[in-house]
Computed example of a mutant assay.
Amino acid sequence: MAQKFIPFEVIENFMVSVLVKAGIPENDAKIVTDVLIQADKLGFDSHGVNRLKPIYLDRIKDGILNPVTNYQIVKEGPTTAVIDGQNGMGHVIGYNAMKMAIEKAKKLGMGMVAVRNSTHYGFAGYYALMAVKENLIGITGTNARPSIAPTFGVENMLGTNPLTFGMPTDEPFPFLLDCATSITQRGKIELYEREGKILPKGWVIDENGESKTDPKEVLVDLTSGKAALTPLGGIGEETAGYKGYGYATVVEILSAALQQGAYLKMLTGFKDGKKVPYNLGHFFIAIDISAFTEVDDFKRTTGNILRELRASKKMPGQPRIYTAGEKEYEVWKTRKDKGVPFGDELLKEFQGICKEYGLNEFLPSFE
């Protein structure tokens, strides 16, 4: 499959233009664009600009995602808040929620904001990195439409429910752990479908608990409930699948119980056979390092831990050991002068977006 790199500046201008055409206010469009492009800059391609059409533009057209975000603060304390997203743009809600958590942490040491009635907020690491940039520890999580089966079950009940941590270090890159509590997630399966690749066994199971490997079939069956993702650790207890199942449940509780939001099968996006808003929940935590120790000391100790891990004895045949955030930094060094990678299918999709939204001046960039 051919691959073409589109400069970040071109993609940013295009994305903002499209989102504004779709009815999103310009300042909000810039936030959405930044979240999506940051994912591509760091190699989280499953949550990058390739989700523009299916997850955002199409949902706006379907009337289940509000392009104008009018979130409301429904409860607030010195270190906490609850926000109702009113089914606006999840990125805008997430950006403002983490900003609020950061402001509270700077004043009183910690801040946590819980969100209900939101929508897909994109690359979770973006919000953790917002805190890192302020020399804080950032934590976030979100529930999602049902995808994961509980251990010993075959019904998709829990979302992919990422639990994400960001911490500053004295290295050129932060510690960033951003991963789903399932082995994989829909975005990656969509990526496999576009690239014509078969899924590894153990990622997805059918109603009999057997592995499914056709990504196109899997995407249909996940929606209909005939397939489910496996939690981190895999099928059953032998490889500790109960651990991923447990962590996914923790994220579900923190994304729903604190803010009295929707959960589990309430998040299917369908009611009486019709599409409805997903009503997702998120949580955002910011921790002020200086309330515990000097920031530079924290960064140095964290850096020492990571460096010692990477310097430890390697498995035969393996050239290096990585720590979380390092591979993303390597991707950024490669892509910063090249831009976002586009395969043939994504190029065709963006050509269609150009024509549909009357942005033909961008067409040559995607040909």
Results as ranks from 00 to 15, higher is better:
299 K>R: 01
236 G>V: 08
102 I>D: 04
315 M>N: 11
227 A>P: 11
40 D>S: 04
8 F>L: 00
83 I>C: 06
352 G>L: 07
272 D>Y: 02
347 L>K: 13
201 K>M: 09
71 Y>S: 10
195 E>Y: 12
216 K>S: 14
276 V>D: 05
304 N>T: 15
189 I>G: 00
212 K>F: 00
201 K>Y: 08
307 R>A: 15
237 E>Q: 08
11 I>Y: 06
267 L>A: 05
22 A>Y: 00
324 A>V: 01
332 W>P: 11
138 G>E: 01
119 T>A: 09
122 G>V: 09
241 G>W: 02
129 L>C: 05
231 P>K: 00
222 L>T: 09
256 A>R: 04
308 E>D: 12
50 N>C: 12
305 I>K: 03
54 P>D: 06
350 F>Y: 11
233 G>M: 06
204 V>R: 01
6 I>P: 09
247 Y>M: 13
364 P>M: 04
167 M>D: 00
360 N>P: 10
162 P>V: 05
88 G>W: 00
80 T>F: 15
363 L>P: 12
24 I>R: 12
90 G>L: 00
235 I>A: 03
334 T>H: 00
358 G>Q: 02
297 D>H: 14
314 K>P: 03
331 V>I: 07
93 I>C: 10
192 Y>S: 13
170 D>K: 10
106 K>Y: 02
267 L>G: 02
47 H>T: 07
239 T>K: 15
160 T>W: 02
302 T>N: 07
145 R>I: 12
39 A>H: 08
342 F>S: 03
35 V>Y: 06
200 P>N: 00
141 G>W: 04
228 A>R: 05
304 N>K: 15
18 V>R: 07
356 E>Y: 07
3 Q>A: 10
236 G>A: 08
359 L>H: 11
250 V>I: 14
20 V>D: 00
344 D>H: 12
92 V>A: 11
59 R>A: 01
310 R>E: 15
100 M>P: 07
300 R>Y: 03
101 A>V: 03
47 H>L: 06
171 E>C: 13
37 I>D: 01
249 T>V: 14
231 P>M: 05
129 L>F: 08
248 A>F: 04
25 P>C: 04
13 N>G: 15
249 T>G: 11
128 A>T: 06
187 G>R: 04
63 G>F: 01
234 G>S: 05
22 A>N: 02
195 E>L: 15
268 T>A: 00
114 A>H: 09
111 G>R: 08
72 Q>M: 10
164 T>N: 12
294 E>Y: 06
161 N>C: 05
303 G>P: 03
9 E>R: 09
188 K>S: 11
42 L>N: 11
329 Y>Q: 10
325 G>C: 01
